[in-house]
Design a protein around this nucleic acid. Structure first.
Lengths: 214, 214
DNA sequence: TAGATTGTTAATCGATTAACAATC
DNA sequence: TAGATTGTTAATCGATTAACAATC
């Protein structure tokens, strides 16, 4: 599939829409949804919902709305969630271990959740061979080989801040094309590798701002 | 302090700037930084750095730049990070426990990090009384009392998706004014309570989009 | 003084919202 | 047919960038 230059603001909303549709599909109460209703549930205006979807095709019927199952399946195609995506996690401290557990559980419980952590790495020699959720903790030296073998496309970084850039470099060198960073530092990546970040301390500091006065 | 309607886009960048300044202050190699250099390290254009800061005052000197220590201390005031902020965490599963550990460590190691988890809650009776990182796990019934006693202003939600809204409601009722949500659902809050979210699955789904073709 | 860099205004760019013809 | 809702274009709104006078 190929659409030219969709803005990131649009791409960020697609998973929100998908989540609403997943929920509705599960309950099977209705077959149809309007842009108004979908927008309300996703926290987005109705015009924006229609505009976002229109970038990718015509999925609705005038006067009727969108068929939930159909739109859901189209969104899964658009987001590239049809095939399983393999993920490597670097840094099996308590946060890394928790995310692994959390992800595995979601993967097992939700048949349509295709994002799966399949390999764990840690630089601490003491941990090598240890198992978490059935996965062995491997040395960083194995990264290249495992990424190739398991067709890993994404890496999650849960190492301390000081080691995050090194971990990112190793992932990039191994051929990963997306990185989700939990470490509280900015990491630099070449243009062809995409970055997502989940930086709790930035979010908390932002909240602190809004707690002032009033 | 009171500035009228600063856009959220601006507020989100302030912690990035602060992080750069913290780092520079630690190494003590230079006393001054230009908007160009600060922007480069934070991943933001120089004009935008100056414009962002100018919302709050005049912190630089023409021809010279910004004094690192001074700007850092001003940003800490602006972001409301001077006083300690107490945080309650709801849902002490592996993720909640990991975040507690992670936060406590940061709090202990970094003298200027003032965000501190001081109370843990879980709805599972089995866990009550159990200790994590020196904090007892409490029943939700205690929330109101503890929030008041400990002057808790922010709540972190790490319960399963199905219980996230209930947890949020309880936090709001207890008087919390900011919530950081890790559960993969949208939660609704009254206008006076601010929301931050760290939703790993949304980020991974977004990455999946960018992994397509090329 | 000459060079550098701020604070700020004006210009540009991009994203959201409003409006409406098409049509189910 | 009448009512509803899409897809899309035009209008608005907001955020970023460029430019430059002020001044250290």
């Amino acid at each position: 599939m190929r659409w030219k230059k969709i803005s990131d603001a649009v791409v960020r909303r697609l998973p929100l829409y998908l989540r609403v549709l997943d929920e509705l599909a599960k309950h099977k109460e209705t077959k149809l949804i309007s842009s108004h209703d979908l927008g309300e549930r996703a926290g987005v205006g109705p015009a924006l919902v229609r505009k976002d979807l229109a970038w990718f095709g015509e999925f609705g019927k005038q006067g009727v709305g969108y068929e939930i199952e159909y739109l859901r399946s189209e969104l899964r195609k658009i987001l590239n969630l049809e095939d399983e995506m393999h993920v490597a996690l670097i840094g099996v401290g308590s946060l890394g271990a928790a995310l692994t557990r959390y992800n595995l559980r979601r993967y097992q419980e939700d048949e349509s959740f295709n994002l799966n952590i399949t390999a764990l790495f840690d630089s601490d020699q003491e941990r090598w061979g240890e198992e978490h959720e059935g996965l062995p903790i491997r040395p960083m030296e194995d990264l290249n080989a495992v990424v190739e073998e398991q067709h890993i496309q994404v890496g999650i970084i849960t190492v301390p801040a000081a080691q995050a850039q090194t971990a990112a470099n190793a992932l990039v060198a191994a051929g990963v094309r997306g990185i989700l960073n939990f470490a509280p530092v900015r990491i630099s990546l070449p243009d062809h590798v995409h970055l997502a970040s989940a930086d709790m301390s930035l979010e908390l500091q932002r909240l602190a701002y809004y707690l002032q006065d009033e």
